[in-house]
């Protein structure tokens, strides 16, 4: 497997866990892998980005501008913010959830209206799903990240058993069952449509 993946979202949405599951996947596949995360201040509700690079040999841990095969976005506006990182013809897997940033909350700015169309104009392919609704059905609002990861794995053609094994390796045992349900729903989300 070879992929440069940029995971973007809002601090608190679980981009770190998502990247660590992909790291576990690389470990299972015997690929080289580097992950780059942001900790500290930006985590407090700010725009966050995590870089995942999986290849036979990885040098820089950072996905460059125009270098991402996939952008996995946990929030619409964040997908658009990082769209420059997408390779020509690359795929955006986006959660249609909107989390309003402070300038929008205070009324200083408007949340952009036509984000999916903007993404479609710039990406080779856009896979959009309402991961929050799925997470709600699963019974754990905080599993949005794992739902999205399921959709990503399906897009990348990773067999379910393998991404499931990666999930099992990366989460605490008591959180595995509920996250497995989230993963499965995300993985099969395109068939459901």
């Amino acid at each position: 497997m070879k992929a440069n993946i940029l995971i973007v979202g809002v601090g608190g949405q679980g981009t770190l866990l998502a990247s660590r599951i992909l790291g576990a996947l690389a470990e299972i596949e015997g690929s080289d892998c580097k992950l780059s995360e942001v900790h500290g201040m930006s985590q407090r509700g700010g725009s966050v980005v995590t870089h995942v690079k999986i290849a036979p040999q990885v040098t820089s841990p950072i996905v460059g501008v125009g270098d991402a095969d996939v952008i996995l976005a946990f929030e619409e506006l964040e997908a658009l913010r990082y769209i420059n990182y997408l390779k020509k013809g690359g795929t955006v897997v986006v959660n249609t959830q909107r989390i309003l940033p402070m300038p929008v909350i205070t009324g200083a700015r408007k949340y952009p209206e036509d984000i999916l169309a903007s993404l479609e104009a710039r990406a080779g392919k856009v896979i959009a799903l309402d991961a929050l609704a799925v997470a709600e059905e699963v019974g754990e609002l905080r599993s949005v990240n794992v739902v999205m990861l399921g959709a990503l794995a399906a897009h990348l053609g990773v067999p379910f058993e393998r991404i499931d094994a990666a999930l099992k390796a990366a989460v605490k045992p008591k959180l595995y069952d509920i996250n497995r349900r989230a993963l499965e729903r995300g993985y099969n989300s395109r068939e459901e449509k």
């Binding site: 809002v10 601090g11 608190g12 201040m41 930006s42 985590q43 407090r44 509700g45 700010g46 725009s47 460059g64 501008v65 125009g66 506006l77 964040e78 658009l80 913010r81 769209i83 420059n84 940033p101 402070m102 300038p103 929008v104 200083a108 700015r109 408007k110 949340y111 952009p112 710039r122």
Partner: peptide
């Protein structure tokens, strides 16, 4: 040069939880 399209989007600074 790596061309970058400039998008005018609302910023999302870190905030108190």
């Amino acid at each position: 040069k790596t061309e970058v399209e400039k998008l005018d989007l609302p910023v999302r600074p870190p905030v108190m939880c």
